[in-house]
Amino acid sequence: MIIDHPLCGPRDAREFTVLGDAAWMDRPDPAAPDAAEAFHAYACLRANPAGVTRELWWHEHGDRSWLVVTRDTLSHAVLKVELAEDVARASKAAR
């Protein structure tokens, strides 16, 4: 699997470790009244789609950046690679 890194170009997936679902970037508000429920869902429940999914990958043996990789779990095709900080900034701006 080749990850087309936005800064480093196409890199072998072996240079990366996978954290998991990119939903981990959206941490619930710990002060909200439903925080316990929200953190349970955040930590332990997954959509687990058969098809397109978004995951956090870490370029451990490279520039050590965090990436959001959009992949197809049925074909292993990599559809889109973004810097996680760009994604976080965009979602903050949207809020």
Binding site: G20, D21, A41, C44, L45, R46, A47, N48, A50
Partner: peptide, 19 residues
Amino acid sequence: GNTSRVMAMAGFDRLPIES
């Protein structure tokens, strides 16, 4: 491995499972 796919049809769209 297809648990999430089948259970989604029953309305469980998020489970403590990843394939």
